[in-house]
Design a binder for these strands. Structure first.
Length: 407
RNA sequence: GCGCAGGUGGUAGAGUGGUCAAUUACAAGAGACUGUAAAUCUCUCGCCUUCGGGCUACGGGGGUUCGAAUCCCUCCCUGCGCA
């Protein structure tokens, strides 16, 4: 019996939308679901009590960040991620693949024209050929080669190396219910040639991740592993990637990479055609309400995104009519809730006036309350989507929601 | 009353003859944020503008100088000390 299994409860005939249940050693995730990002074993500014209270089902942490701080051994010593952060429900860990991108190619400049194949000597973790000058002169903290990725720590500038095997090793120690294969998240600006090269490499890393995971028998009885589809904004590569990964025996699939709004739909269409129906699909890093509707329609089961907490900390909140900033003076004179009708802790206990004051004053509680509200908003929006699928009124819900919500 | 120090943009506080509409910080205003290098970052922040520039400005007034926030005189105000 696999530690992570998926069953589909209902599929809609007019789209690929579906409702199901992912079972993990720490409980179930009823899908579609929004999993909350808790990078460093904490959902920034929101204690587990509130997560549970608002109906959060799963938390996604990050391998690279926990490896750097406090170190995977500390997490293991504490009894694993769940015990460490006092979150009893399902957890996931991203592999560090996203950091290859965010610390490497970044969103702009110089994508693909460097990242020379730097092959370190043997299985030695010391990146002998790593050229720090080269990396930093391009404003990068990560350089990719066939074997893995060399990072410059953003904490102290020290060099670190990730390979598929290393990512698995760390993720095993962290102990999340669902792990992700080590991948290279590419820039949306990367050329076809580079995307293809990176994708092929990601596939090789996927096989290696799978192998390393299976080799750790104890871990593979407790943790599931998802492969990550790449391919950038190219349909042919997306299809190829999905096909290649579908042939590998993962417990589920993540769809990675960066998308433009237009690309998202096309990419998911292609990818889902190739992925096995009976495995869960996680749309990595997405997102905004309107994107989640697209994802669900295209057959995505779970989502994650930093937006609710990051936006909240920065003073923006979701409402039924769209996003709004709480940093304006006018908000100080509004004694109603942030979003009328919202049942979250922030809205049922504090007026907009007070939360606006906190945010303007730079008080921690402001960002915490806004984060709680935003998480509640998204998590429950996806719960409503799930219910609507089960009750066969997804299209209606989507129409109602989007007619009110301005992007 | 005498002595000393000082009066600069919303605030604090640089500048001490030209490169000053004036460093910087904060406040204020606007924008961004999609697998978290983010409780962060970007822009605006005297008035007007055809965005080339124009105008009014560094307590008030007067003066020196080609040129003054910067030097001189004078007045007003503030703080400290002495009477």
């Amino acid at each position: 019996m696999r530690p992570v299994t998926f069953s589909i409860e209902k599929k809609l005939p007019q789209s690929r939308a579906r409702a199901g249940v992912i079972t993990t050693p720490h409980g179930v995730i009823e899908t579609p679901a929004f999993t909350v990002v808790g990078t460093k074993a904490t959902v920034k500014g929101v204690a587990p009590h509130f997560l549970k209270d608002m109906g959060v089902q799963a938390v996604l942490s990050n391998t690279y960040h926990l490896y750097l701080q406090p170190g995977e051994d500390v997490v293991a010593e504490a009894g694993g991620l769940h015990k460490f952060m006092r979150w009893e429900g399902p957890t996931l860990t991203d592999s560090g693949g996203f950091q290859v991108f965010s610390l490497g190619a970044g969103f702009e400049a110089g994508v693909g024209k460097f990242a020379p194949a730097v092959v370190p000597a043997e299985e030695d973790k010391t990146p002998v050929f790593y050229d720090k000058e080269l990396a930093t002169s391009h404003g990068k903290l990560a350089i990719v080669d066939e074997e893995g990725v060399t990072f410059t720590s953003h904490h102290d500038g020290t060099l670190h190396r990730f390979t598929a095997e290393r990512s698995m090793e760390i993720q095993h120690k962290i102990g999340a219910d669902i792990m992700f294969a080590f991948d290279e998240c590419t820039s949306p600006l990367a050329e076809h040639d580079y995307q293809k090269e990176a994708m092929a490499r990601t596939h090789r890393w996927a096989e290696r991740s799978l192998r390393a995971h299976r080799q750790n028998v104890a871990a593979s009885q407790k943790q599931g592993l998802y492969g990550v589809v790449q391919g950038g904004r190219y349909e042919d590569l997306r299809r190829e990637s999905a096909k290649a990964l579908a042939a590998m025996d993962f417990d589920g699939y993540g769809i990675g990479g960066s998308f433009s709004k237009e690309d998202l739909m096309k990419a998911l269409d292609v990818v889902v055609e190739e992925l096995p129906e009976e495995k869960p699909r996680h749309l990595l890093g997405i997102g905004e309400p309107e994107d989640i509707f697209i994802g669900v329609e295209k057959g995505m089961d779970t989502f994650d995104c930093v937006a609710p907490t990051r936006l909240g900390r920065n003073g923006t909140v979701y409402t039924k009519t769209g996003k709004t900033s709480l940093r304006y003076e006018a908000g100080l004179h509004d004694q109603g809730p942030i979003d009328p009708g919202c049942a979250c802790y922030a809205c049922t206990n504090f007026p907009k006036s007070y939360i606006t004051h906190l945010l303007r004053a730079g008080e921690y509680l402001g960002g915490m309350l806004a984060s709680i509200h935003n998480l509640h908003f998204i998590v429950n929006m996806v719960k409503d989507i799930r219910t609507s699928i089960l009750e066969d009124r997804f299209d209606e819900l989507k129409k109602d929601f989007l007619s009110m919500y301005s992007v």
